[in-house]
Design a protein around this nucleic acid. Structure first.
Lengths: 241, 241
DNA sequence: CAATTTTCATTTGTCAGACATTTAAAAGTC
DNA sequence: GACTTTTAAATGTCTGACAAATGAAAATTG
């Protein structure tokens, strides 16, 4: 593990890169202990503070975890799906909000990906997935539910749909698309009338997944996309006045 | 911006979280300058070293960038699609390699998502996208091409297909699915015979995108998925002997 | 001898202070 | 007015210190 003597960036960034590359290349394997901070600072010929900054960078990406005490240290972390979800969602959310991605573009990405899950979900859904979907539909019908809670339940419903596809890699990829849209969705005020329509479509989707009818599921998702877009257009038009 | 006095985690992690939350919530907007390290260390009542560790965590996620000199400091970074791609690919690659995701599962996720792009790509592809795809097909036919280069070209081909869908959010989500599989793909030895078949399918796909035939594009992608899986099974079977 | 407690070395977490380096504004010079 | 020099402010890095956690080894106790 060597750092580039010609590099222009910070030492801590270079050291982080060197270690990260070693992890990605498989030279450092899961649960392997890195040298102690003191040893690393000798190896790289920098101070302990600089090594620590590098390690914190890696910790921020969940590439390592640290433990205090004798026989503690920094260990290569097994990146769990859970941790990856979290990072994926944060990144997606910021990407969408900072780059002025239009509601339509984000919505298209989301529903395109969700439709892709439908055929798999129809094949593999378990009673658990169906139960979650039904439960969220019921929640969405509760009177007095705030717009935020309605949106959160919407996310949970779609999350169940995606998980029903039974492919964790797919679930991970979609976490960003679905949850990253939440700030945009939260801008919409859901009237009783529009909630009713969304619940109707959710029910159609859940029924289609239950009866293993991929075509209907995909069509309903498309309809939901159109309807969501319409709601957004209305909101933005009203706001522009 | 306050840190939780009851929290158990490191101070630097808590401070990073506080700032991250402020960014995600929109309290700190793009290009806004954070207080200097000295000011932050006063605000949070910690040493400058601790503040720096927190800032390095945020820098690792591309949430901030720092600049030296008077009127320098830490600024909220506009998370570009480029940066997000990179993180997404690193995370996906590690997620797949560390969690013993089967070739089949990763492959399924990848082709499911790619098929979803096909209808959009058919509508929106530009001559540029088609040209890139054709160029990569030509490259793949070059004799003497190493397996690694063949894989890289394969990724570039599929990347062009995804980009042809004309939705940057979709491109971002798929970057992980396509490129994260590369280590797995690199385990396959591509014989002249199998390259021929892959090139044939790539040509069919490119033709379908050119003639705006989504059905053929999707079917060819499915065929490519089956074929790739078959190749992988053969490799693993041969290795098991 | 077995169980418990204490000690101890190691390692990360945090702090304080110093100096180097970079940078752009401000002041000075021609 | 154009150029150079100075200067103040900020990050980057280093050093040395102490606190806190932690598990192994040693000491103690029943």
């Amino acid at each position: 593990m060597k750092i580039d003597p010609n590099a222009t960036s910070d030492l801590s960034a270079q050291i982080a890169k060197a270690i990260r590359d070693a992890i990605v290349a498989g030279q450092l394997i899961v649960d392997e202990r890195l040298p102690s901070e003191a040893e690393l600072s000798e190896q790289f010929n920098v101070s302990r503070a600089t090594v620590r900054e590098a390690l914190k960078r890696l910790a921020a990406q969940s590439l390592i975890r640290t433990q205090r005490g004798a026989f503690g240290g920094a260990f290569v972390n097994r990146l769990s799906f859970e941790e990856a979800y979290g990072q994926q969602i944060t990144t997606s959310t910021l990407l969408i909000s900072m780059n002025e991605v239009s509601f339509e573009t984000a919505c298209e990405a989301r529903y395109t990906l969700e439709r892709a899950c439908a055929p798999l979900a129809v094949d593999r859904r378990t009673p658990d997935h169906l139960a979650t979907m039904r439960a969220e539909i019921v929640r969405q019908g509760q009177p007095g539910l705030s717009d935020e809670s309605f949106c959160a339940s919407d996310v949970a419903f779609h999350r169940a749909l995606v998980d029903a596809a039974g492919n964790p890699v797919l679930s991970y990829q979609l976490a960003g698309a679905v949850e990253g849209m939440q700030p945009l969705m939260n801008m919409i005020t859901f009237t009783a009338r529009s909630r009713e329509e969304i619940i109707r479509l959710h029910t159609t989707i859940a029924d289609a997944i239950a009866t293993r009818d991929a075509r209907i599921a995909e069509c309903s998702l498309s309809e939901l996309e159109r309807y969501t877009n319409q709601l957004a257009r209305d909101v933005f038009a009203a706001r522009a006045k």
